[in-house]
Amino acid sequence: MIIGLIVGLSIPVGRYIAAVMAGKKVWLSAVLKPVEKRIYRVLGYQDTPAEMSGRQFVLAIVVFSLMSLFVVMGVLMTQQWLPFNPNHVHNVPWDLALNTAMSFVTNTDWQAYSGETAMSYLSQFAVLTTQNFASAAVGVAALLAVIRGFSRKESQTVGNFWVDITRFTLYVLVPLSIVLTLLMVSQGAVQNFAPNHVVQGILLPSGPASSQFAISLLGSNGGGFFGANAAALFHNPTGLSNLFESVAIVLLPAALVVMFGQMVGRRQAMVIYAVMLGLLVLAVIGTTLSELHLGQHVTDVAGSTALEGENVVNGIGLSALWNTLSTAVSNWSVNASLD
Rank of each mutant, 00 (worst) to 15 (best):
T129H: 06
T129G: 00
T130Y: 15
T130I: 15
N132I: 07
A134P: 04
A136G: 04
A137G: 07
V138N: 01
G139Q: 04
V140I: 14
V140D: 02
A141D: 08
A142R: 05
L143K: 01
L143G: 07
L144P: 03
V146T: 06
I147A: 05
R148D: 09
F150P: 02
F150I: 15
F150Y: 10
F150E: 10
S151C: 05
R152T: 15
R152Y: 14
E154A: 02
S155K: 09
Q156G: 12
T157E: 02
V158I: 14
G159R: 10
G159M: 09
G159W: 13
N160E: 10
F161W: 11
V163Y: 07
I165F: 12
T166C: 05
R167Y: 04
F168C: 05
F168A: 04
T169R: 02
L170P: 07
L170T: 14
V172Q: 12
V172N: 11
V172T: 06
V174L: 13
L176H: 04
L176M: 13
L176V: 03
I178S: 00
V179H: 09
L180Q: 04
L180A: 11
L182K: 02
L182Y: 08
S186C: 11
S186T: 01
S186M: 15
Q187N: 12
V190W: 13
N192F: 07
N192K: 01
F193C: 00
F193M: 11
F193D: 00
P195E: 13
P195K: 09
V198D: 00
V198Y: 01
G201R: 07
G201C: 11
G201K: 07
L203S: 10
L203F: 08
P205W: 11
P205F: 10
S206D: 10
S206P: 02
G207M: 05
P208T: 10
P208L: 08
P208C: 01
S211A: 14
S211V: 15
F213Y: 11
I215A: 03
S216C: 08
L217Y: 03
L217K: 00
N221T: 11
N221E: 09
G224K: 03
G224D: 08
F226S: 07
F226Y: 13
A228R: 06
A228V: 11
F234S: 01
F234R: 00
H235T: 11
H235K: 01
T238Y: 14
N242G: 12
L243T: 06
E245V: 13
E245H: 03
V247T: 02
V247R: 00
A248S: 06
I249H: 09
L251T: 01
L252T: 03
P253Y: 08
A254F: 15
L256A: 02
L256D: 05
M259F: 06
G261K: 05
Q262Y: 05
M263I: 13
V264F: 09
Q268L: 14
A269Q: 09
M270K: 12
M270W: 12
M270A: 14
A274V: 12
A274I: 10
V275I: 15
V275W: 10
V275L: 12
